[in-house]
Nucleic acid binder design. Sequence first.
DNA 1: TGTATTTCTTAATATAGATTATTTTTCTCT
DNA 2: AGAGAAAAATAATCTATATTAAGAAATACA
Lengths: 190, 190
Amino acid sequence: MINKQLKNSILQFATPSDETFEEFNDLLEYREINKKEFILTKGQNCKHHYFILKGCFRSFFINEKGTEKILNFGIENWWITDYDSLTNLCPTNLYIQAIENSQVLCITKENMDKALNHSLEMNRYFRIIAEKVRIADQRRMYYMFNLSGKEIYTMFCEKFPEFVQRIPLYMLASYFGLTPEFLSKIRGNG
Amino acid sequence: MINKQLKNSILQFATPSDETFEEFNDLLEYREINKKEFILTKGQNCKHHYFILKGCFRSFFINEKGTEKILNFGIENWWITDYDSLTNLCPTNLYIQAIENSQVLCITKENMDKALNHSLEMNRYFRIIAEKVRIADQRRMYYMFNLSGKEIYTMFCEKFPEFVQRIPLYMLASYFGLTPEFLSKIRGNG
DNA sequence: TGTATTTCTTAATATAGATTATTTTTCTCT
DNA sequence: AGAGAAAAATAATCTATATTAAGAAATACA
């Protein structure tokens, strides 16, 4: 039987048949990932999509100066991967790491292609997921262009309190493109 | 008959039947847009996807200080729209404007939904398009985090010379999140 | 062909946020 | 509970880029 959480995620946007659900289920693998463990590191070819059942991940790269720059967080019911490496079959620049002890369902690119080959509804689901991510990216760009460091932090605390609670401040700073010191200063000045 | 350019774009990623192509064609409208003309302005609900046959567009917003901030450019064979406003049926914050005299094929959200309702291949095409955009966004984020103003400009000139030729410098500056003055200085110092 | 508008450059000054170094607090694990 | 590690705060200094203002090229357009 397909995992209930994933089924609900899919049913938000698409209506595959029971058969399609079960076929998709057969392509998935359950994994537990410990806090700080990596599911992807620089230089590897990214092979999987990950659906987060429980826990929290971050994807980041390390710049020339050795500083971590976070591109994305992922929490329950989100998909996380490096699309660039996955679709272009090239080595990734990214690290994807568990921030908490986590549980995921993972699926290889090949199996994903299989699932997408004959199901309109699965194509619809992943199309809509990609469009949602696109919207999130656009909003993020909008914020980063439009707001000062302080405003970004304030906005984020309002809109995503669940992230602020569970993610260390220095990771949030990295996600906003700020230094932890500066974010700490912002916080101090109310 | 469906437009050749659009057909080729679709065939890159999907293989709809001739019938599906023709059905899709019936949902499209051809429009010519003059340089500086807007196809979307702040406050409107975005109603269309636009496929660019010829010309060049920019999507931007105007911040509190009255400065234009460019989120994206679009050229031949790209789709452009405000996905956020379109899918969430809310007023847009963006302007989409022709940078050159242009020709587009446009399709309403309703017609797009129709096309996507019964064609696996069209779902596949738009899924892959969304994934490509996602990758482009991620790369952009990567550059903006990792590179100085000068490095961004140099990289962009190398990777997208066709944009640098046809788009005014002050618009590129806005796209990079820099001021035109600073970009001009960068350029001057070789 | 000349005038207006748009685009680009230069230069002086200002500032948001980075860097570096130190200290304090909080978490984690035995 | 206590030691060590991880995370956060504080503060001084520095720097990349913004801002403002003026003028020079380039382009469009009448």
